[in-house]
Design a protein around this nucleic acid. Structure first.
Lengths: 120, 120, 120, 120
DNA sequence: GTGGTCTAGACCACC
DNA sequence: GTGGTCTAGACCACA
């Protein structure tokens, strides 16, 4: 796995894990790879994976059974989506609209571009 | 001024400066606030403002007269808009569309939200 | 059975076993559940139960007949109570009192809560 | 500073910080020592202090100004006390009462011991 | 100077 | 085997 420079690796791994869950590769209730396994897989220090798991656990997307491993929470998918939606509506959308206005772009242009995007 | 966690403060100040220019609050050829003044205004360390000005100067949006201050370049508005438009079309828009799809949102919803935004 | 985060599971199982003995559910001289049985009951790895039994045996609360099983010692109840009472008076009580004071709670509050607890 | 074996160092440092706040040694709004300073003071790796600060920040007891340092939140004292109170009422008190009953101790005994404790 | 991230490697308790 | 903690040391962006 390649990492972007612009974001902490442990967060990118977080996104990776969430994607696996959203795509039903790792199902709710399943055990996910151990910190060591995933560390080897992604060519990353186990501590870094640990940090990801810590972060996801504090967001209740995964949980831990002591001495056994980490597991996908029951409502993980819902949580991920609602978390992202909130992020999107609160942060990205206002910025997006502001940009539209500042750049003097017409909303209809965007609509057209979206159709092109969908068609791809 | 409040700053987002997701982006360096000096870049956010850069956006702020560009906005002043685009909105004709600071006109081309005019002197803009000194590093210290803006630092006080925005509750930010002067070094940070300095970094912003450095950055904007390297993009030729502002220029410097030694011992006098920083000034808005003649074609600043054009430059800002073309720079931003490129950024917007290449980077933000694809991400934006991708998000829409992942979150399963309808484009009509966005259109409605935009009207609300405009009305404000 | 639910386990607290703050203490090792095998110790919490130890408390559970002692309680069964104190409450006369498992009587002195009787055979107690096998490591596997209790493991299934409590949804826990048999190794963990094994560790509990090891621990209790080293405190002479239970003993082992090879190939037969584990049994409650003759004077188990006395031992448990004296062990716990010591623990309680030396360790828990001082901490408890200290907490009361730090939190600025009145002892009468505690008395009331105790009545509620008893009434349950 | 000496650390107990029974609890993670970073949590003990957390308690230490909270104590400083409760005792008005570090006041609300004040900057607290940098991770490096406190690391030297307590003879501990800066990363460990970092972990403490992370933890306290997620509990909103301290907050961070980027590039400047960590600061005591406005209502830190209230938060600490209410956090501890919750912990006490939910976790310790039920266990305490349960112990009382199992050990067959009278509540009046406890009341007497408390008076002795207070008198000290 | 500050925090933040990451690595490598160690040791531990626990399951 | 698992996670959890800690250290030492490095590098970086940021203020």
């Amino acid at each position: 796995m390649e990492f972007r420079e612009t974001q902490a690796i442990y967060l990118q791994i977080g996104d990776y894990v969430c994607e696996q869950i959203l795509l039903d590769r790792w199902n709710e209730g399943d055990r996910i790879p151990s910190v060591r396994e995933l560390g080897v897989d992604l060519q990353v220090n186990p501590n870094t994976v640990m940090r990801t798991y810590d972060f996801l656990q504090s967001n209740e997307i995964i949980y831990n059974k002591r001495g056994v491993g980490y597991f996908v929470s029951e409502d993980a998918k819902t949580k991920i989506i609602s978390y992202r939606k909130k992020q999107f509506l609160d942060q990205e959308l206002p910025l997006f609209f502001k940009n539209l206005r500042i750049l003097g772009m017409d909303f209809k242009e965007i609509a057209k571009l979206y159709e092109l995007f969908i068609a791809k």
